[in-house]
């Protein structure tokens, strides 16, 4: 464990909690892409099946349980409890265009052709593009609530910190996982224009509005 990975995990946890609290407190999921949240639930489910097969640490296990629990709770709030506030018209990204190619790639490019390893690889590839429906929805509505931008900032920051973690681990532990690194770079790059808008607008107290 190193400082980048720990702060990355905490940033990820913060994002998940911010979103859950935003929906719960405001009793509304306006501006939130339910499709992205379903993809994240799939990402955690396929990645953390090793909860059943291997134990790494209390921290590892508890974080995985929290991530999975919050992901499904968020999906439940969006599609069940507060479904009247779900903006399905703007959440129109065709996720099959993500899941199918990612599934195919996971079968072709992986570290080991075993069931759990292919699912882990699928989860890594899927996570790198899972935010696209959310970013697409914001581009369609042309704006985002400030709390949603904080959620996205923490979510984007987490994988950027993981990139620093992989540099650290390469240097100090001569560990590197090309699949995770490449997917992590793609994932972080997808946030770049959002990061620019967040830093130049939201941090200056303005509302995040895209040129419609």
């Amino acid at each position: 464990m190193n400082v980048f990975r720990l702060t990355g995990d905490l940033s990820h946890l913060a994002a998940i909690i911010i979103l859950l609290l935003k929906i719960w407190k405001s009793r509304s999921c306006a501006g939130i892409s339910g499709k992205s949240q379903i993809l994240f639930a799939i990402v955690f489910t396929t990645r953390y099946l090793d909860l059943l097969t291997s134990f790494i640490s209390i921290y590892n296990t508890s974080m995985k349980v929290i991530y999975i629990g919050c992901a499904y709770a968020t999906v439940y709030l969006i599609y069940m409890k507060f479904r009247a506030t779900y903006d399905g018209n703007h959440d129109s990204f065709r996720v099959e265009f993500l899941v199918v190619p990612v599934g195919g790639l996971a079968v072709l490019v992986n570290h080991d052709f075993s069931f759990l390893e292919i699912l882990w690889t699928f989860s890594i590839y899927l996570e790198s593009v899972a935010i696209l429906p959310q970013l697409f929805m914001i581009s369609k509505t042309g704006e985002a609530e400030t709390i949603t931008t904080h959620y996205l900032f923490c979510l984007g920051l987490y994988r950027a910190l993981y990139l620093l973690n992989w540099i650290w681990r390469f240097y100090f532990e001569s560990f590197f996982d090309m699949i995770a690194i490449v997917a992590g770079v793609v994932q972080t790059v997808l946030y770049c224009d959002f990061f620019y808008l967040y830093i130049t607008k939201v941090l200056k107290g303005k509302k995040l509005s895209l040129p419609a």
Partner: peptide, 10 residues
Amino acid sequence: KAKNLLHDEL
């Protein structure tokens, strides 16, 4: 491919 496939990261 006996890589240590125990993924210790979240």
